[in-house]
């Protein structure tokens, strides 16, 4: 019984944590962009504007619900859900920390579901998110949205492949697809005695490829062709308003958070604290949050610093540069492992 309760508690806490983290990220995005752009950013709602995400949420609720003429109604309504839900589902297998407690001899892990195919689950579910964008673009009955949706689909195919290949090298190295075990392995020993045994030091190329691919995977600048406000006027979400638009937004931020968490788990040892393998679970959790927050900051930092790629350049980069590199990475990993 208490096991069940603990499970429910974990679901509630992690889900609430994810959604509020998405809210905080929107605030962080606005604050960091303001900081980069010599502005102040939101500072009216609450002290230093910290309640701005709440105000935004309330505003979204009271905006007019608008469905364009000629739109395919049920697909139009379905698309925002399809964009948001997979992003929220992916978080289920992320091990935020080590063993929290042991109840009746069963350890309670820091993830909602400790499954053996965690790596596959993440790729399978997060790949679904793009359907929301494609459908949203197609169902809107707008040409800009259509082009945005088309771009998103092509982009997704070209980047998910490299991403999966990078994960494959990690899996080959670790010998497991369970994300918790991948974390534990990075925590267990140290590299050359002075570096933590994080995968980033074993797979530097894989790390760089993976981080770039997460940008494309989450449709994030400089790969945000699906929205591309300069030529496509917002792309797939041009016609969306009120909470439906907010759902796309939440989905995007959740996807970013999940990808940050995944990068942390796969490459930065997850909840591992350097040289303190026996760290208590809450210290591990704090370490995890700090590492993931760094990647969130990276997402924001890059967005406000770089120009956008062109669509064909992105495709060329994906197929002609990243895919061969990821394949080479898998090959070298396999070669080293077999020696």
């Amino acid at each position: 019984m208490s096991l069940f309760l603990a499970q429910v508690l974990k679901v509630v806490v992690i889900f609430a944590g994810l959604v509020s983290a998405a809210g905080v990220s929107t605030l962080a995005e606005r604050k960091v962009s303001a900081w980069i752009q010599l502005r102040l950013g939101p500072n009216r709602v609450g002290p230093f504007g910290v309640l701005q995400p709440l105000a935004d949420g309330i505003k979204f609720f009271f905006k007019e619900e608008f469905i364009p003429q000629g739109a395919t109604r049920w697909l139009f309504l379905l698309a925002p859900m399809l964009a948001a839900i997979p992003a929220m589902m992916t978080v289920a297998v992320i091990p935020f920390t080590g063993v929290i407690a042991t109840v009746d001899g069963t350890p309670i892990y820091g993830s909602i579901a400790d499954i053996d195919i965690g790596a596959i689950y993440v790729m399978a579910i997060s790949g679904l998110g793009v359907y929301g964008i494609i459908l949203g673009g197609w169902a809107s009955n707008s040409k800009y949205s259509l082009l945005g949706g088309l771009r998103a689909s092509a982009q997704m195919i070209s980047y998910e492949l490299s991403m999966i290949l990078v994960i494959l090298s990690i899996v080959a190295m670790s010998g497991t697809m369970n994300l918790r075990e991948i974390t534990d392995q990075q925590n267990a020993n140290s590299l050359l005695g002075f570096l933590p045994a994080w995968n980033v030091f074993y797979q530097p190329l894989g790390f760089v490829l993976f981080v770039i691919c997460t940008f494309a995977e989450t449709n994030r600048h400089p790969f945000d062709f699906a929205e591309c406000e300069s030529e496509l006027v917002g792309g797939f979400h041009t016609e969306y308003s009120s909470m439906k638009f907010a759902l796309f937004f939440i989905g995007e931020y959740c996807a970013m958070i999940v990808m940050s968490c995944l990068t942390t788990t796969l490459f930065l040892g997850g909840a591992a604290v350097p040289f303190w393998a026996e760290a208590p679970w809450f210290v591990g959790l704090a370490a995890f949050v700090v590492k993931a927050a760094f990647f969130m900051f990276l997402f924001i930092w890059v967005r406000w610093s770089l120009p956008r790629f062109r669509y064909d350049q992105l495709m060329a980069l994906g197929w002609k540069v990243f895919l061969p590199l990821a394949l080479a990475n898998v090959f070298v990993t396999g070669l080293v492992l077999s020696l």
Binding site: S33, Q37, L38, R39, C228, S230, W304, S305, R308
Partner: peptide, 16 residues
């Protein structure tokens, strides 16, 4: 022209 190509911050720097 920078903001058109997605480099939003340049726009703020020049506007400053």
């Amino acid at each position: 022209s920078a903001i058109d190509l997605g480099a939003v911050s340049i726009f703020f720097f020049t506007f400053q």
